[in-house]
Design a binder for these strands. Structure first.
Length: 451
RNA sequence: GGCGACGUGGCCGAGUGGUUAGGCGCGGGUCUGCAAAACCCGUUACACCGGUUCGAUUCCGGUCGUCGCCUCCA
C-alpha cells in the first residue's frame, strides 16, 4: 500500500489514483536558461525513480515533464549571449537532455514545450478572464489573487501574510500587488505571439497549467517539482487551473529537497553551482545517482567531492557483488522488503540499505561455497528500479586497454606467480591498476574489473 | 515578521516507546606469496531543558541552532 507525502495535505497520505491501475504524473522540468547544475539532476532523478517504481508496481503510468522555453530569464540570457531566444533555449534543452541521459533518467511519455502550446495557453487565459479571475491591462493579463478564495492552500499562505512580505516593485497596472502575470505584452525585439490582448508571450506558471491539462486532464494524480517551486509557481498553477476548471487540478503534490553547497542551497542566483555535465563526465552518472538516492528525496542534501567519492565507493561494492554473482529468480522476501521501503513515500535510503544487506548476504553465501542466485536476482531487480543500470560510468581515457589485452596481461602475471617471480607479477598488477583495472585473486583464479 | 523542514555515533544517512539500520572510515582477525576483494569481531549516537510513562532518541511543551520559501529558482 503506497503512501506519499503530499505537500498539499502536509502529511503522509495513502495513494489512490484517479483511475484504478493508472497514474497520471506531471513534473516541472527545467526552464532552459542556462546549463544544468547538480540540483537539477537531483529533481530529475527523484522523479525518475518515482516513475520507475510506479511502473514496476504495476501501474500504467503517463508521465509528463515539461520544458519551459520562453520566459524572462531566457530572454535576458539570450540577449546577453547575442543569440536568439529560440537558439539558446534549444541549446540548453539539449544540455539538459544529455545530462539526464548520463544520469539514467528515462525520457517521459510527453515532453511538451511552452512555445508549442501557445493556443492552449491563450484559451486558458481567456477562460480565466471570462470567469472574472483575470483581467487585461494594456496588453498584459493578470490573475486576480483576491478573486480566488482558496489561493494559498498549497504553500500555506494567505494573501494578507504575503502582503506584509511583499518586496518586489509595484507594477502600476496591477489591481493588487499580489496579482501575477498570465500573459505579458511583448517588448520590442522579444519573441511574441498574436493574442486577443495583442502580441505577447505567456507568463511563468500558465504553461504548466495549460500543458498538464492537455496531456493529463483535470484531477490528475501526481504533480512534482523542486520544493522551491511550491510558492509561487505551483500555487499559481493551482490558482489558474482550478480557477478555470472549478475542479481539482492535481491530487498529490510531491516536492524534492534542495542540493546544498556548504550548507547553502545550490542556485544560480548565488553563484553556488556545480556543473552537472562535468560531474557526470568525471565521476559518472551512476555515482551521482547513488549520492542522490542515499538520502530521501524530500530531505536537503549536501554536495561535495568527498561525499560523491563515498557514494562511488558504495557503488563499487555493489558492482563487485553483481559481477561476482549470477542472478536468478529474485528472492521474494527481499522484494517484499523493497516494496515496504518504497511504499513509504519512496524510501530509497531504506531500499539502498536493503541492497547492501543483500550484498553482504550474497557474498557470505558465495564465500561459504553456496549459491546466491536468488539474492543476486533481487539485487538486479532493485538496481533496475533505482535506475543504476541506465546511468553512465565515468568517461574512460582513450588509452584504456581492451578486454583481450587485459586478459593477456593477467595471464602473464599468473605465469609469473606460478614461477614465483613475484616482483614481475606485482609490476604487472601495478601497471594494470594504473590503467584502471583492479585484480582480485581468489581460489578460482584471478578476476579483474575496471574501475 | 509570516509559512515550512530539520537537529542521530569520526563522516554520510535511516529508523523506533524497551531488542544490530546501512555505507564510508578506524582497530583486530580469517584468507592470500603480498595486496586487493570478501567475510567475521570490535568501535559509537540520538542538540538542550522540562513533562507524560514502569521505561523516551522515539510522544508533549519550551529553549537554542541550522536550512528552505515569502523575488528568479529543481
Amino acid at each position: 500500500m503506497l503512501e506519499v507525502y503530499s505537500t498539499l495535505h502536509r502529511a503522509l497520505v495513502s495513494f489512490e489514483p484517479r483511475t484504478k491501475g493508472k497514474v497520471s504524473m506531471y513534473v516541472c522540468g527545467p526552464t532552459v536558461q542556462s546549463e544544468p547544475h547538480v540540483g537539477h539532476g537531483r529533481s530529475a532523478v527523484a522523479f525518475d525513480v518515482i516513475w520507475r517504481y510506479l511502473v514496476w508496481s504495476g501501474y500504467d503510468v503517463t508521465f509528463v515533464r515539461n520544458i519551459t522555453d520562453i520566459e524572462d530569464k531566457i530572454i535576458a540570457a539570450a540577449e546577453e549571449a547575442g543569440e536568439s531566444v529560440e537558439t539558446l533555449a534549444r541549446e540548453m534543452a539539449k544540455r539538459f537532455e544529455d545530462a539526464f541521459v548520463g544520469l539514467g533518467v528515462l525520457s517521459p511519455d510527453f515532453e511538451p514545450k511552452a512555445t508549442e502550446h501557445i493556443d492552449e495557453i491563450i484559451n486558458l487565459t481567456a477562460v480565466l478572464i471570462d470567469r472574472g479571475l483575470a483581467y487585461a491591462r494594456d496588453g498584459d493579463v493578470y490573475f486576480s489573487v483576491r478573486a480566488l478564495e482558496s489561493y494559498g492552500k498549497l504553500s500555506g499562505r494567505n494573501p494578507d501574510d504575503l502582503r506584509s512580505g511583499y518586496r518586489i516593485e509595484v507594477d502600476e497596472s496591477k489591481e493588487d500587488p499580489l496579482d501575477f502575470a498570465v500573459w505579458k505584452s511583448a517588448k520590442p525585439g522579444e519573441p511574441s505571439w498574436e493574442s486577443p490582448w495583442g502580441p505577447g508571450r505567456p507568463g511563468w506558471h500558465i504553461e504548466c497549467s495549460a500543458m498538464a491539462e492537455k496531456y493529463l486532464g483535470q484531477d490528475f494524480d501526481i504533480h512534482g517539482g523542486g520544493s522551491d517551486l511550491i510558492f509561487p509557481h505551483h500555487e499559481n498553477e493551482i490558482a489558474q487551473s482550478e480557477g478555470a476548471s472549478g475542479t481539482t487540478f492535481a491530487r498529490y503534490w510531491l516536492h524534492n529537497g534542495m542540493v546544498n553547497l556548504g550548507g547553502e542551497k545550490m542556485a544560480k542566483s548565488t553563484g553556488l553551482v556545480v556543473d552537472l555535465a562535468s560531474i557526470i563526465e568525471s565521476h559518472g552518472g551512476r555515482a551521482l545517482r547513488m549520492l542522490y538516492l542515499r538520502a530521501h528525496y524530500r530531505s536537503p542534501i549536501e554536495y561535495s567531492e568527498v561525499l560523491l567519492s563515498e557514494a562511488a565507493e558504495a557503488l563499487d561494492r555493489l558492482d563487485r557483488f553483481r559481477k561476482r554473482a549470477t542472478p536468478g529468480v529474485p528472492e521474494e522476501i527481499a522484494l517484499d522488503r523493497f516494496r515496504e521501503a518504497m511504499d513509504d513515500d519512496f524510501g530509497t535510503p531504506q531500499a539502498i540499505s536493503l541492497l547492501f544487506d543483500l550484498v553482504r548476504d550474497g557474498n557470505r553465501l558465495l564465500d561459504e561455497g553456496g549459491e546466491a542466485s536468488a539474492v543476486a536476482g533481487a539485487v538486479e531487480t532493485i538496481v533496475a528500479v533505482l535506475g543504476f543500470d541506465d546511468a553512465s560510468d565515468p568517461a574512460v581515457g582513450e588509452h584504456a586497454l581492451t578486454d583481450a589485452e587485459v586478459d593477456v596481461l593477467v595471464g602473464e602475471r599468473n605465469q609469473a606467480r606460478s614461477d614465483r617471480r613475484f616482483d614481475d607479477a606485482d609490476a604487472i598488477r601495478d601497471a594494470l591498476e594504473d590503467q584502471g583495472v583492479s585484480l582480485e585473486d581468489g581460489p578460482n583464479g584471478t578476476r579483474w574489473l575496471r574501475k
